[in-house]
Amino acid sequence: MTFVLDGFDLDAFVAATLAEDLGPGGDITSEAVIPADARFRGVMDSRDPIVVAGLPIAEAFFRALDPNVAIERLVEEGERVPAGTDLLRLTGRGRAMLTAERSALNTIQHLSGIATLTRAYVDAIAGTGAILLDTRKTIPGLRRLEKYATKVGGAENHRMGLWDAAMIKDNHVAVADGVAEAVRRAAAAGIARIIVEVDRIDQIAPALAAGATHLLLDNMAPEILREAVGLVAGRVPTEASGGVTLDTIRAKAETGVTFISVGRITQSAPAADIGLDFDTL
Rank of each mutant, 00 (worst) to 15 (best):
I224C: 04
E156K: 12
A104F: 00
L10N: 04
L276S: 03
G92D: 00
I34V: 14
H214T: 10
F3E: 14
M220F: 06
P24R: 08
R119K: 10
H110Y: 08
E101P: 08
E146S: 06
A115E: 01
A155R: 07
A115D: 00
A189D: 11
I125F: 04
R136Q: 11
D277I: 02
F3C: 15
G154T: 00
R235S: 08
A100V: 02
I201R: 08
V257A: 06
G129K: 13
G7H: 01
D37S: 10
V257E: 03
E72G: 14
A209C: 10
A207Y: 10
L216P: 03
A271P: 01
A207E: 00
V262P: 15
D21V: 07
L88G: 12
R89L: 15
A272W: 03
M44Y: 11
D11Y: 07
S261D: 09
T99G: 03
V196I: 02
E197Y: 09
V179W: 02
A233V: 12
A64Q: 15
H158D: 05
A205C: 05
D134W: 03
A83P: 04
R200W: 01
V122I: 07
E223G: 00
P222K: 09
A186D: 03
G243Q: 02
S268P: 11
G230D: 05
A126Y: 00
I125G: 05
D218P: 05
V244W: 11
I139D: 14
V196L: 05
T91K: 12
L132Q: 09
T128N: 03
R235I: 13
A155S: 15
N68Y: 11
F259S: 00
N171V: 13
E181K: 15
F61K: 05
R89F: 08
